[in-house]
Structures are given as C-alpha cells and as structure tokens.
Design a binder for these strands. Structure first.
Lengths: 239, 239
DNA sequence: CCAAAAGTGTTGAGAGTACACCCATGC
DNA sequence: GCATGGGTGTACTCTCAACACTTTTGG
C-alpha cells in the first residue's frame, strides 16, 4: 500500500485530484408485511436534498472524517438516521466506479447492519427518512440499487445464520421465532422438527428452563444465543 | 452515500482534512517448496524505499488515481510489480484503521489475485521485489501481516475451489494437477479416487480426449475448466 | 373434546470417506 | 515382470429432508 518501489509522491503533496471517501450503510430490519402478515426484510432510506439525484432515495451515509474509524462512521450514520444501535455490523464491499457519481470521484465503503424488529417499529420516520420493503425498492440514487442487491445476496448466503437471526431477536426467543427469522431471510419454509434438531446440534443456542405460556397450545421453551459459538473463523479480519 | 438529510458540505469544499485512498494487492502463486518439493503458496513483496517503514517489506500497491477504476489499479500494480497478468482478481477488504499509517490517514482497498505457477517462476525479481512463502513472512510494513492473513483465510475458505484451482493452472490439466492445487491450498491430502468423482460430479471440469504420456505409468486424461460453471452466484456485485 | 403448535421418532436418499482392486505405461 | 500412478467399484458413515406420531396447553 502507499507507494511501492516505483516511488510516487503522495497525491496530496503533488496536489493532484483524488477520490473522496464516503461511508454508507445498508440497514436491515425484519417486520411483518402489512398485508401478507409474513415477516419480510425492510430498510430505511433517506431522501436526497441536493444534487446529484435531488429528490431520489439513497442509502444513509456521509463523508468519512479523517479522525473516525470506518465502522464507527457506519454506526454513527445508522444512529443518526434511525435512532437505533446495530445488533450486527459488518463491512460489505467498497464501490468505486468512476462514473457512479456524476462529476466527482466518490469511493464508498459500504457496511451492512441488522437491527431489532420491534425497535425498528418505532424508529424515527420523518419526511426525509422512510422504510421500504427490501424486495421492492424504487429507483435509487447513485448505484444504490446494486448495492442493496448485493447486501441482500450476502445476507441470504451467509453461513452463520445463527448470529444473524440473533441480531433480529431479543436475548431469549423460542425456536419458532428463530425459525421464522430463518424462513424470512431464506424465503422458504423450514420443517420445525428438523430445524429444532439442527439448531440444537449446532450448539449455537442454549436451552433455558423458561417457557412462554398464553397461547392455546403447548408452551414453548425459551432459548438463548451462545456467544461462544461465534468463535469459529474470522469473518472480519479484525474481530 | 454522499451526504444524507443532515446535509454536510463536501469535505473538499470545506477544506477539511480527509483520508487518502490507496489500492494494494495480495498476489498468490503456487510453487514447489525448495526443500520439501511440496507445492506451497508464495507471494511477492516490495521493499519500502521511504518512510514510514523504510526498508521493510510491504504489499505492492499505490495511490488511487482519480481516473482509474479500483480493480484496474490493482491489476496495474500487479503488472508493474511482477510483469504478470492476474488469472483471478477480487476485492478482499478495505482497511482503514486510523493508526495504521503513522501521521496520515490512509484507507486501503485491498484486492487479492492469483497468477500462474510456471509463469511466476520467471517473474521479475529485483533488489526491491522478492517472493516469500505465504506461511512464513517477516514483519511487514503497516498492517500488512494482518492483511495477508485475512487473504489466506479467504483463499482457503472459498467455496469455488474449481475457479481458484483453474487460475493456478493452464487451460488444460490432469486431475492429479488439479488435486495438487487443492491439496496445497487446503493443506491436507485428498483421496485421488474420491477427488475425481467429486470433480466430475460438480460439472466444473470437462473431459477432453487428450492424454499426457511420458511418465512411467498410465497416461492421464486432460481436462478443461468449464466457464459456465462460474454462472452461479455473484461473489462480486459487478461480475 | 378439539385445535394448534411443541416436541420426539423413524426412515430413506444422497454426500462424503476409506480402501480394495484393476488398467496402462516406462523401464 | 514390476513399479507407479491413473482410474473403477464398493461398502460404510453421516447429514439432512420428509413425515408420522405423541405431548401440552387454551378454549
């Protein structure tokens, strides 16, 4: 990195034009669809108040301050937009096509985050912030449609579903709730019996002795996510 | 991206300090170890000719020109360092810790690449460029030890071994050669019989009618990589 | 008692592993 | 022939999907 043996001066020193760095975040929450009652993925977008793409919806984000870490900038952006804290935050990809922003060269480091479903319900929604169903977005500013598409792909092909599902839920949950999250993300029904066995075998959940009563059927046992299960391989170089 | 509803001016406009963008590449080749005869992973490093970390070895890279695509910059860097063209090139991660470069804020978009083994043999090696065994590197400049470690992890946990192995080989290859690549990357021996079946079942290789004679055993059939097999899911948002 | 979801048992198909065995070549 | 890897056959294990069945609650 920096210069190699064919030594160049810093672009700042030679005063050349250079790219500008931005950080954006794709924020997913799980909410029941207004009509179908099924849990689906939603994400908040902000309306552009200036050119380019004035009036269009875009991912929350901003320029990277020189004294702020990348992940911190993503988390801050998330907080400023939704008043929420991420339960999961990971770098997605860096988009830097020359023509992705008219006129200026902008390179965007994009993160993706998961937030709690119930909490997202009462999240700040104003004139310039709105939640959209992830599968039916309007035309977005910049290359953000492509960005969201890639984030969805990553979410759905992630191996560690357990950690993702946990991010969407509370600290304790029934296996039915956990299964519902998996089904929403994977977009297919799962066999309750087999799901139970595979979860218990994976060791990513711990059974408690508590149960939830009140429904007109056998009470479901509550489970807790096992933090130690995340100690497998580094999905992020840092960890 | 860019500014959101809490509108900020561009950092350029307000003249604030901002991070500088660099692109680096981890370049892997497969070469027989000098002693053990076994195929192992090697990568080229360049010696720093200026501060910081003067004299230490570092990944090839450079500042990002405002008019060059990220992947192009990575490929150019690779060519300038090794006189080689990448057979595989993919974005790895973006490293941006505040303190990773003393004094200045540098954000590095890192790519990883694979090059042909035989070709890497006669690759340019000078005073300031040298190939190292990937598993026993010296102390590198910046956070490059961590970067290489992450690149190795990504290489070894990639699902599409077929495409990776193909990048290391020529257009046609025997299953023994293909197996040797897999064994080197995965660092474990594979059963020849089972390997053959799993490869043929995967559909990622196509059998030709050519054979290689000359060895004092039954001639091995040559195979060809099936490009169509890569049409599964987008590992890169672009493709 | 009945409906509904929690939870258990059983079976079969397919993938992966271990390993015995045959085939074709150079020497 | 014999050594050496190329290539085939086969049996065993393990995971996972399918689905019948039992359990426990509310009404």
């Amino acid at each position: 990195m920096l210069d190699h043996h064919l030594t160049e001066q810093s672009p700042l020193e030679r005063g050349s034009t250079q790219a500008t760095l931005a950080v954006s975040t794709v924020i997913f929450a799980l909410r029941p669809d207004d009509e179908s009652r099924l849990m689906t993925l939603w994400l908040p977008l902000v309306r552009r108040t200036r050119d380019p793409f004035l009036g269009l919806w875009a991912l929350p984000g901003g320029w990277l301050p020189a004294d702020e870490e990348l992940a911190s900038a993503a988390a801050r952006t998330l907080r400023e937009t939704t008043d929420l804290s991420p339960r999961y935050l990971e770098q997605l990809y860096t988009f830097g096509d020359i023509d992705r922003s008219p006129g200026v060269r902008v390179v965007s480091v994009v993160y993706w985050a998961l937030v709690r479903s119930e909490v997202a319900e009462r999240a700040s929604v104003g004139e310039n912030v709105r939640w959209f169903a992830a599968d039916s977005l309007p035309l977005l500013a910049f290359d953000h449609n492509r960005v969201v598409e890639y984030a969805l792909w990553r979410l759905r092909t992630k191996v560690e579903y357990a950690r993702i599902a946990h991010a969407f839920l509370g600290d304790t949950f029934t296996l039915a709730q956990l299964r519902e999250v998996h089904e929403a993300v994977l977009q297919k029904a799962l066999d309750p019996a087999n799901f139970r066995r595979s979860m218990e075998a994976s060791g990513s959940v711990i059974s408690t002795n508590q149960h939830v009563a009140g429904a007109r059927h056998r009470p479901a046992r509550l489970y807790r996510y096992d933090e130690r299960a995340a100690e497998h391989d580094p999905p992020e170089p840092t960890l």
